[in-house]
Structures are given as structure tokens and as C-alpha cells.
Design a protein around this nucleic acid. Structure first.
Lengths: 235, 235
DNA sequence: AATACTTATGGTATTATGTACCATAATGTT
DNA sequence: AACATTATGGTACATAATACCATAAGTATT
């Protein structure tokens, strides 16, 4: 793409004459920043990296990277995620674009916020020089992050809350087989709201998106719950 | 910003060594494309321009423009809108980013889709060389648009539908004083769904977001309806 | 002037959905 | 065996959604 970057003014069809040379428009970089959400023993956590270089050296930040010229945006986000967590085919979606002029100190970098839901058990940190700079942080106790990353996290969590009932997401954070109690605890954590247990069951089961398995919970000191699996998302 | 574009590899903190020079990342342009929605005699319409230059010369397209180096994304979108319609302070929001590698034939242009709701009566096309290339098109009869603009329109309409009940938007498409019948007809057009008149009234009035005025419809050949105005959005 | 026609508006009955709460079941622990 | 704990099924009640009817208030027609 960079080979044919010989733009002429007319080739991009402005409404009126541009006041600066057309090449000046082609000086932006795109980045993706991923809010990677996990769930561990009742707590929501987010995967952060510690920056090893300026700007914001030593500060915690969302994992992210510049988009390569040959990459689609979604591919860049998947690359960041799989490189950091070793996970593929993970639930992932756009949150919002952050395009403030001065959001990045070294140049015009526009970032696209993504969020993804991962099962923290499946996650195996890549054995690399970066591993020691990676850590899960409690959502409620996030440090001050580099750039506008706190804003991105907030936006991601808002989107998650909005979508949870409508799209019935969140199961990605749980093991493949789970109990109704586990989903309820998870949704209560995400939405910061308590539900009546019996009613929650009814509502969720009536949606037909869960498959009851012929298996029960093991090694619990009370009546074991039936295990369920998620239906293939068809709608 | 373009003055200090002397990036070193470390200044952007990659997870691992980049396989291309850092400057290659800073060759993108950002654009905004606006789905400007209006409502005219029961029909939803979208403002399109006819492209006067390659690529896609002669084809209809969403109004949009490149983002200037000194502009925030939202500012660019507002600029496009006000330049084309003369309107300011209009309802406007991000829809989605479109970042496919080859979406723009002349270079790497990532576009941010916006949508806005305007009162088509207030709209006065700017008297300019561009005026004759501007036109409102019925949503149901859109031509094939340049680039991926049909996708953007579809995404914008989807977002509008999702938000209409939750955020009670759409009034922006109507005159300042309107009847309940008018809102209902509008929402029915947008959502492609019929509602019971009496129930729709109750539901909408119970939300407390409308102010009943001491005025009635004029010059209608039936019982005139009471006029309402929109409450200051406080929540 | 009376009648027909059209849309607005208020109301009620019915149905569906959401909520509170209780009873019993099934397991491990003491 | 009694108890603690969570699961699960069920019922009673409250609230919201829906269907539908009756009347009101205008214009147009006869």
C-alpha cells in the first residue's frame, strides 16, 4: 500500500480545497488497545502490561499495538490477544475509537478500543521476556493507566454491561461446563446487582440458550448443581 | 504534530521487534463518513453526495472527509455535517470503525462511521458548487454507494434502532412541537413495526420526557392533537 | 343542521412478565 | 442422625405489555 502513496489532491475528493498538502493527512498511525477481561474466584480482572519504554515507561497500560499496513483492524486486535495470551477464537468486539489530537505524545495515533472475554483458566502466559511485565488486575483496583487507557476500560465495561442480557455473553469467562449458580455470580459481579436465585434460573433457562448436561457438580459440600453448556449461538 | 515525527523504535513500545521501519506505521489517514438521517412526510431519508472525482467518480456516497492533523475525530464529523447542511449542535454519535486494508483504493484510509439525526425542514443546502451534487435518498431505495458506504449505512440504522427506546431519540427528526401521532409514525418507520396507538401514548408519556403544551394541531380535517415538546435531556 | 368520517384520547380487561418468597431435595459435615 | 448449605420446583403477588372499546373533537358531505 505504501508504494502507491502518491496522492493527488483530486484523488480523494474533498468538498473544498484542502489548506494543507494532501500528504499531511497520511501521517496517522492506528493502534488497538484491548481490555482483556477474565474472571477468577468471583472477581473480574483485567490483563495489564507494564510499559518498558517511554512514554509512560514503568506505568501499567492496556495491551495494544500499532496496526501493520497489511493488517485489518480486527486482525491487529486478535494478534495482540493471541500473542499475549496464546488464545485464539476468543469473544472480541470493538468498543469505541479514541481520536483526541494529543492522546499520544509521540504522534497522531488513533486507537480503537476492543474488549474480549477469556477464560482465565485457559490462559497460559507466554514464556517470554514480557511475561514478568504482565499481570491480572482487579477491575475495582486498577492503577492509573498510561494514555487514555482508563477511559477505554470504562467504555469497555459499559459496553459489556449493555450487551450482557441482550446477547447473553459472559459464558466465555467460565469453564465449558458450568452451573447456573456460577453464571449468576458472574453476572452479579459484572452488573453489580443481586438477583433472586430461583427467578434468575427461570429467566435464563427460558431463553433456550443452555444445554442441560447429564452431569453434576463434584466435591461440593452441599447438594451438587446440574452442569450446563452453552448452546451454539445460532441467532 | 508532523514536526516531531521522528519516531524511534523504542518510542512506541512494541511487544517485540517490528519487522518494518516504524515510519511505515504512520502512513494512514483517518476519515469520517456521516449517515445523515432526515424524515420527510413519513419517509426516512439519507443525505448523499455524488462524487466528482476518482475513485468512484459519479457514484453516490456518504458525505465524509479526511480528518485534519489538528482535528479531533468528532470535530471532523461536525465539520462535515455543518458544511453540508449548515446545521450545528445536531445529534451525532459514533457508529463503528471500518478498517479493512483495501477499503480505499488510493491508500490506507480508516474511516469512522457517524450518524446524525436532523430536521429536514431546518436543512438549507449550502449554496455552493456542491449543492447540485447533494440529495436526499429514501432509505429503502439507496443506490449502490462508493467504498463500503452501504455497510456504514446499515450499521448506522442498526445502532439507531437499538438506541431508540433506550435513549428516546428520534425527536431530532421532527419539528420542535409535535404530536404523539407524529412520533409514533416516525418510530414505526424507523423500527419497521406497528404499535397500538393508545398503548404507545401511555408508554411514552409515562417516561416523563415530553412536555405537554397548551397548543393544538392546526388545519387538520379531524380532531386536532395536542402538541408536545421534548424535555431537556437531564438523565 | 344533521350526518358521516377521521383521528385523538381516556379507560378497562386480559395476558405476559417480573418479583418475593416458601418448600423440598440432595449432598457433605459434625 | 441431625445439621448446614446450596439446588430446584413451585406459588402468590405486583407490575408491565397488549388488545380492545368508548367517547371527544374536529372537518367534510349531504
Amino acid at each position: 500500500m505504501s508504494e502507491n502513496s502518491q496522492f493527488t489532491k483530486n484523488s480523494v475528493e474533498p468538498y473544498y480545497g484542502y489548506s494543507i498538502p494532501i500528504n499531511e493527512f497520511f501521517r496517522c498511525a492506528l493502534s488497538v488497545d484491548c481490555t482483556i477481561i477474565g474472571y477468577d474466584k468471583g472477581d473480574l480482572k483485567i490483563l495489564l502490561i507494564k510499559r518498558g519504554a517511554e512514554p509512560f515507561k514503568g506505568q501499567w497500560a492496556l495491551p495494544g499495538d500499532l496496526m501493520y499496513p497489511y493488517e485489518n483492524l480486527d486482525q491487529a486486535a486478535e494478534r495482540v490477544l493471541s500473542h499475549l495470551t496464546g488464545l485464539e477464537d476468543v469473544y472480541m468486539d470493538q468498543v469505541k475509537v479514541f481520536g483526541e489530537v494529543n492522546r499520544h505524545p509521540v504522534g497522531r495515533v488513533i486507537t480503537v478500543g476492543y474488549y474480549s472475554l477469556v477464560n482465565i483458566q485457559d490462559y497460559k502466559p507466554k514464556a517470554s521476556a514480557w511475561a514478568h511485565q504482565l499481570d491480572w488486575h482487579l477491575v475495582d483496583e486498577l492503577p492509573e493507566l498510561a494514555f487514555d487507557h482508563n477511559q477505554i476500560v470504562t467504555a469497555a465495561l459499559t459496553v459489556l454491561k449493555e450487551r450482557i442480557w441482550k446477547d447473553e455473553i459472559g459464558f466465555e469467562l467460565l469453564p465449558e461446563k458450568f452451573t447456573l449458580g456460577q453464571i449468576q455470580a458472574l453476572w452479579e459481579t459484572i452488573l453489580q446487582e443481586k438477583f433472586d436465585k430461583a427467578n434468575f434460573r427461570k429467566k435464563l433457562l427460558s431463553s433456550q440458550s443452555l444445554i442441560p448436561l447429564n452431569e453434576n457438580q463434584q466435591n461440593v459440600s452441599h447438594r451438587p448443581a446440574k452442569l450446563y453448556a452453552l448452546c451454539n449461538k445460532d441467532k
